[in-house]
């Protein structure tokens, strides 16, 4: 059993104060990554601030701005939220790909991105949706695009004293289909060997890929070919993705297989979203 302090926090300012002043302070929401990481020695927490009951973090709403998903909202709640299912089903697919049903009853979208695994299943859809991360802290609030939030494996743009308050999917929503295609070893509860999000935006496409670099990446080479050069041969377009990624070999797959699978899934994603 590990030793640390636990603070149940219902006031955001109290959380900022703890995060600002304390050493090794971690916000606790679902805990599904945090507690595993603490057990494995990845996180040496001295204090956990339980932020689940902070009202500002429990927002799940759609308004003029778009869809706001508070940091304490679980993945199953996101998946079940009608505006998400209707307008950005790709995000529901990404959330649904994380862990098992019981894990998703606790795990949050904010936790998934704060863990900053390049393989995070919600990340690629958020990249393809140009999601905005609303960050709150003692020094004030700021909002940054998702692609600036991920800095490296396990590293985010959060400064000391800050936490993710919510994830915003801005209006206008993409026009057209989006799909999250995941390759994994078992096809069941498993980490992504690669994850590919392809989101149609009218006659344009945005493509994001997980588990192929230090952070999730956009497939700009492919996007450029499709969006600017009007490439309609999806196989040719997909081949360009090799320029956008730099996968490694690990237990889940070799570098070669990842290159190959990304190409296949990008092509399939284009076929399924942009039409054959």
């Amino acid at each position: 059993m590990l030793s640390y302090d636990y603070i149940k926090c219902a006031d955001l300012n109290l959380a900022f104060q703890e995060l600002e002043e304390g050493e090794q302070v971690y916000p606790l929401a679902g805990g599904t990554d945090l507690i595993v990481g603490m057990r494995g020695g990845k996180f040496a927490a001295k204090t956990l601030i339980d932020i689940k009951d902070v009202p500002e973090l429990n927002v799940l709403k759609e308004d003029d701005q778009g869809i706001t998903i508070g940091a304490a909202i679980t993945l199953n709640e996101v998946t079940g939220f009608t505006p998400v299912r209707e307008n950005v089903p790709i995000l529901a697919e990404g959330c649904h790909s994380v862990g098992s049903y019981s894990i998703r009853n606790r795990a949050t979208i904010a936790g998934n991105i704060c863990n900053a695994s390049p393989a995070a299943d919600t990340a690629a859809p958020l990249y393809a949706l140009d999601a905005v991360i609303n960050i709150a802290g003692s020094g004030g609030n700021r909002s940054i695009p998702i692609k600036e939030f991920f800095i490296g494996p396990g590293k985010t743009a959060l400064n000391k004293g800050e936490l993710v308050q919510s994830v915003l999917i801005r209006k206008p929503y993409p026009k057209g289909k989006g799909i999250y295609l995941k390759a994994s070893r078992t096809g069941s509860v498993d980490l992504a060997t690669v994850g590919v999000a392809v989101q149609r935006w009218g006659d344009q496409v945005k493509i994001a890929i997980g588990a192929v670099a230090a952070t999730p990446v956009r497939a700009f080479s492919v996007e450029k070919a499709v969006n600017e050069a009007g490439e309609k041969r999806w196989a040719d377009a997909a081949r360009l993705v090799h320029e956008d990624i730099s996968p490694i070999t690990d237990l889940r797959g070799s570098r070669e297989y990842r290159y190959h699978m990304v190409e296949v899934l990008v092509r399939r994603g284009l076929e399924q979203t942009m039409g054959v």
Binding site: R185, T186, G187, S188, V189, D190, L251
Partner: peptide, 16 residues
């Protein structure tokens, strides 16, 4: 031994 837990030693689940 590299895969010493269920994260990386996968066994069949009900949906397999």
């Amino acid at each position: 031994m590299l895969n010493r837990n269920f994260t990386d030693y996968k066994i069949a689940t009900i949906d397999n």
